[in-house]
């Protein structure tokens, strides 16, 4: 069961973390749109400890952000974008569980 589908607006969770997450700080708390589904795979939090098989597997998604959403001082045109991938645990529907940055 996938929690999100292409076209959903999502916000990246802004949680305190330790160790390996592959979820960059500059994306946290930012709102974007799911543009691609990716297969389920072991999450980086478990993969980092070598738990390739028994680690938690989750769907991944590619999320597209407007650059002006990521950077308040973005100097380029409004249409520029950035994409990155997230495991499901790092995303929330936009509007619920939103954290201020």
């Amino acid at each position: 069961m996938r929690r999100f589908k292409v076209g959903d607006r999502v916000v990246v969770r802004d949680e305190t973390t330790l160790f390996h997450t592959r979820c960059q700080g500059y994306m946290r708390g930012r709102i974007g749109t799911v543009v691609e589904d990716r297969p389920a795979w072991v999450i980086p939090e478990d993969e980092a400890w070598g738990r390739d098989e028994d680690g938690r597997h989750e769907p991944f998604y590619v999320v597209r952000f407007k650059q002006t959403e990521l950077w308040a001082d973005y100097a380029g045109p409004d249409l520029d974008t950035l994409e990155s991938e997230f495991s499901e645990r790092w995303l929330e529907p936009a509007g619920e569980g939103e954290h201020s940055v």
Partner: peptide
């Protein structure tokens, strides 16, 4: 040109 969208891909996951 400013009317071409620049789409940066931060490939920091599996793909």
């Amino acid at each position: 040109p400013a009317d071409v969208e620049i789409r940066v891909h931060d490939s920091n996951q599996k793909s």
